[in-house]
């Protein structure tokens, strides 16, 4: 199934493009308003044509995902904020030339990936170091809403364990996992957003999953 088929099938079902029907898959789209029926692509086209409100809706849908992508990849809150802002500014600047060639999420996370790579190239980073002394510590997850205290404690510990494991993954593997979770990207879309082959993206995702599963064995 290609990207356009996904977009079209989502439109047929009356779902925003990028959101799967509840039974189809377990993709998670954070902060997706339940009453939103316009696809990301149509919102971006509307914004391109001058509808500022369309951008607000798009931003609301993706602000958390893009921010967390930056935070996980550079592990520095101040830097993540700077890059996050750049991504959206780049999107705003590129609006005039926007055309639907892929899912909007793929487009957006490609911009985010490019910005991140650009940053590290400029700073002569060969790789994003996990031992960076300036890196902010992994934040403790906030209390889960509606959870009982003992469950809350366990869930928080579990979440902290996962974030810790995620931080130890190689950058590319972590990126593949985060793109899947935050952007709802498929293997093909991860490959597209990160400019690698499908097989490479698939391999990265599999390694990431295997390591995270192994690290989370005690919670299963």
């Amino acid at each position: 199934m290609n990207t356009l088929t996904v977009i079209q099938s989502a439109a047929v079902k009356g779902l925003p493009a990028g959101c799967r029907s509840p039974g189809a898959s377990a993709y998670w789209r954070p902060e997706m308003p339940q009453d939103a029926d316009a696809s990301d692509e149509s919102l971006m086209l509307a914004y391109r044509d001058g509808d500022a409100g369309a951008f607000d809706r798009l931003y609301e849908r993706h602000r958390g995902g893009v921010y967390r992508y930056m935070l996980r990849q550079c592990r520095n809150a101040a830097l993540a904020e700077e890059l996050f802002q750049d991504v959206w500014m780049n999107l705003i600047r590129a609006r005039a030339s926007y055309e639907v060639q892929a899912r909007f999420s793929t487009y957006l996370y490609r911009i985010a990936h490019n910005r991140l790579m650009d940053h590290f190239r400029r700073r002569d980073f060969v790789a994003m170091s996990l031992d960076d002394e300036t890196a902010a510590p992994v934040e403790e997850p906030a209390a889960l809403p509606g959870a009982q205290p003992e469950i809350d404690i366990e869930a928080r510990a579990q979440a902290a364990q996962l974030l810790s494991l995620l931080g130890k993954l190689p950058d590319e593997q972590r990126e593949a996992f985060v793109l899947q979770q935050e952007g709802g990207l498929s293997v093909e879309e991860i490959a597209e957003a990160t400019s690698v082959s499908r097989e490479t993206a698939k391999s990265r995702l599999r390694y990431a999953m295997a390591k995270l599963r192994e690290g989370m064995q005690s919670w299963r």
Binding site: Q158, L162, L166, W219
Partner: peptide
């Protein structure tokens, strides 16, 4: 191999 709902659930709670 490429998707794990339980991991996704935990990540959702953490992120």
């Amino acid at each position: 191999m490429e998707h794990d709902e339980s991991l996704a659930k935990v990540y959702r709670a953490a992120a």
